[in-house]
């Protein structure tokens, strides 16, 4: 009976959870984010070393051109499985030494001049956006393919976009077909060279597609660098960079919870024994 009561209390607390999750999903507009499977999610999930090493390569060779990861030093990459030699090699591709942080070669003023904004630091990126890893994956893969761009150009060839073309573009751009004017305007901006991304709120932003071609990064482990593969690896690495202590946290957590369960069961037994003196 008493146990039932405590379960009731716990349920009250848990009531909060679906309620806030539901709301946060409902409030984000635009197409649904791709739901990737991330091996490091969940209480037992750990990072895949091979994916981390590949991701580090993508981040250093591609992202670091404009973005920094100011909270990560090259030396720390030993934690994801690189040897000191590999770390040195990776650091030298970025023109750095292994004691340096992963800072972009591009300075803030130059970046502001060419993009209009300073590219944000990526150290915490997977924790700093709604949708987390899936959002970043969506951004990396949400650009238009060349044939999609060609389709947009075709639609605009005669300078007008017919209703049939609006329908086609709506599919292509994952936009609401009930707002043809908006689609027409977006098509014009795409043609003029603005960077369109399905998953970015507002669709246009300063970053041109960073991973634009299959095989853009030649992986050292021989994995084929498709855009999806590179994106997944890069996001995996960024998730590690956002919280390098995650593995420690989870392994400590499992021990702590197991300990607490044992202790609580024992306390419950003692409680029953002591209270038996009253309810006999």
């Amino acid at each position: 009976m008493k146990l039932l009561r405590i379960i009731q209390a716990a349920l009250c607390v848990l009531l909060l959870l679906p309620f806030s999750v539901g709301v946060s999903l409902a409030s984000s507009g635009g197409p649904a984010l791709p739901q990737q499977s991330w091996g490091f999610h969940g209480p037992f999930g750990q990072f895949d070393t091979a994916a981390l090493k590949r991701g580090a390569q993508v981040v250093v060779e591609v992202c670091l051109a404009c973005h920094s990861l100011k909270y990560i030093k090259f030396d720390q990459l030993k934690q994801v499985g690189f040897t000191e030699m590999e770390v040195n090699a990776l650091a030298s591709t970025a023109g750095k030494n292994r004691k340096d942080a992963l800072l972009s070669a591009m300075d803030a003023d130059a970046a502001k001049e060419s993009f209009g904004i300073v590219p944000p630091d990526l150290s915490l990126m997977t924790k700093a956006r709604k949708g987390y890893e899936n959002y970043l994956y969506g951004i990396l893969t949400g650009y238009l393919k060349d044939e999609d761009k060609a389709a947009v150009d075709r639609a605009l060839e005669d300078d007008t976009v017919s209703d049939a073309e609006v329908k086609e573009l709506a599919m292509l751009l994952s936009m609401d077909p009930h707002h043809p004017d908006k689609i027409r305007e977006v098509a014009r901006r795409i043609k003029s060279g603005d960077n369109f991304n399905k998953f970015f709120p507002g669709n246009f932003f300063a970053m041109p597609a960073p991973l634009a071609a299959d095989g853009q990064v030649t992986y050292r482990d021989g994995t084929h660098g498709s855009i999806a593969q590179m994106s997944h690896d890069a996001v995996t690495f960024l998730a590690w960079a956002a919280e390098p202590t995650m593995a420690d946290r989870k392994s400590a957590g499992i021990k702590v919870i197991l300990y607490l369960i044992v202790l609580t069961v024992m306390l419950y037994a003692v409680k029953r024994r002591i209270w038996a003196r009253i309810h006999h």
Binding site: P43, K250, I257, L260, T264, V270, K271, I274, W275
Partner: peptide, 25 residues
């Protein structure tokens, strides 16, 4: 004591489990 000390301790155990699920996971 000991009736409510032990009952409070037991409650703390249950509460801490829930607390630690969030802290660690």
């Amino acid at each position: 004591h000991p009736y409510y000390t032990i009952k409070d301790l037991y409650g703390m155990g249950v509460f801490l489990i829930l607390f630690c699920v969030f802290v660690f996971f």
